[in-house]
Design a protein around this nucleic acid. Sequence first.
RNA 1: GGAGAGGUGCCAGAGUGGUUGAAUGGGCCGGUCUCGAAAACCGGAGUGGGGGCAACCCCACCGUGGGUUCGAAUCCCACCCUCUCCGCCA
Length: 421
Amino acid sequence: MHDLKWIRDNAVAFDAALARRGLPPRSGDILALDATHRGVQTRLQEMQAERNDLSKQIGLLKRQNQDASTIMAQVAHLKEAIPAAEGLDRDYAEQMELLLAALPNLPAADVPDGPDESANVELRRWGTPASFDFPALEHDVLGERMGLMDFEAASRLSGARFVVLKGALARLERALGQFMLDVQTEEHGYTEINPPTLVKDTALFGTGQLPKFGDDLFKTSTGHWLIPTAEVPLTNLVGDTILEEASLPRRLTALTACYRSEAGAAGKDTRGMIRQHQFLKVELVSITTPDQSEEEHERMTRCAETLLQRLELPYRVIVLCTGDMGFSARKTYDIEVWLPGQGRYREISSCSNCGDFQARRMKARFRTAEKTNRFVHTLNGSGLAVGRTLVAVLENYQQADGSVVVPKALRPYMGKIETLC
RNA sequence: GGAGAGGUGCCAGAGUGGUUGAAUGGGCCGGUCUCGAAAACCGGAGUGGGGGCAACCCCACCGUGGGUUCGAAUCCCACCCUCUCCGCCA
């Protein structure tokens, strides 16, 4: 949600920032509506003040058992005017809300401009893609050959874009989740949360999925939504609260199932378990002061990278250009892991700084030393999508005979299993 | 799912349709006292919005949204949420 006051004072900058997102200028519409709204508001408030004043006089007279009919006649003309003005006021406020809620966050100054993913900029690489002396296979081929990954069964149960994992492979996914959570909580200071995965629409509004992107979500017959990411419950945890500045940053993590309808992804990644309706993800969320937010963004990204380094999976980090960023983000780093079977890097984690965009929507403030309340900054990122990490492990650790070696970092979680075959 | 109780400020907890933005207690901030602290006493303090260079003025807010009224925390309706009991259930 945008700050209307800021737009009033920075209309040109606002439109310029929208332009970087490929959007037409909106400050004209917004400020015109704002002026009209404030005019109505002023008139309404004047009438309310008059009514309050006269009503007080009526109260005084009545208590003294005197006749108040003269004053009551004076106030009569407001009887229609005030409700009418109130209605207008509400309408304009609602229009403004719709107008602002539909606009995405403004990109940070150092985000590269560009229309789509082709303009993203690679920042760094870690690790060297292994060269196999045999043709590398894709994860789904490996998994099915081992009899540990069953897409047919999944489609009988649930249709397309689901998978059944079995035996050692199911355990490997569990091991990955445990490993990631342990590193983030024990080494990086994140507090583990086990949140609901069904939420109300207010929560989705707070993080920006609603009102615009409901099509991407699953909704239950009870009106609940299945979360597309644990960012939703984790971030909304601080919604409608005032935090003490000293308690920031707050770092939260959760391992949850995530659900996405993939409505706009028809035909994309239909094979394998790259793009599923349901997947596990370890999410990281930080709630910070504005001062801390940029540094925290870098830190969070490193926290996610650490996992790939421990797993010895080659990756690269890119910064998304203005045209490729999500709705709520002002800056986003994607971490892409190397997939030998596909012969390319593939997104495995996305770390976004949302500034105070979400905080304004869900009213998350902090109290400063001067005792004024300001909106917090929220940052969120996956501390890795577990399913895609599983894919990366399979493809990077595959052997000539089609078996897969368990990465060292996961051994403690795998019991006696050292190889999947 | 059935029955009941309730949602008021940082917390607890009053509140008769009319100077109630809201008693009281705790906590918090400032001060007096003290070498310092505690205790005691005095004082201060909500959030958002509109206007003004400013002192300051005005409006709204007692779960949410409507309604009745000159006037609503208080009365009416709907919804949401919480708690207790019963039923069902992993």
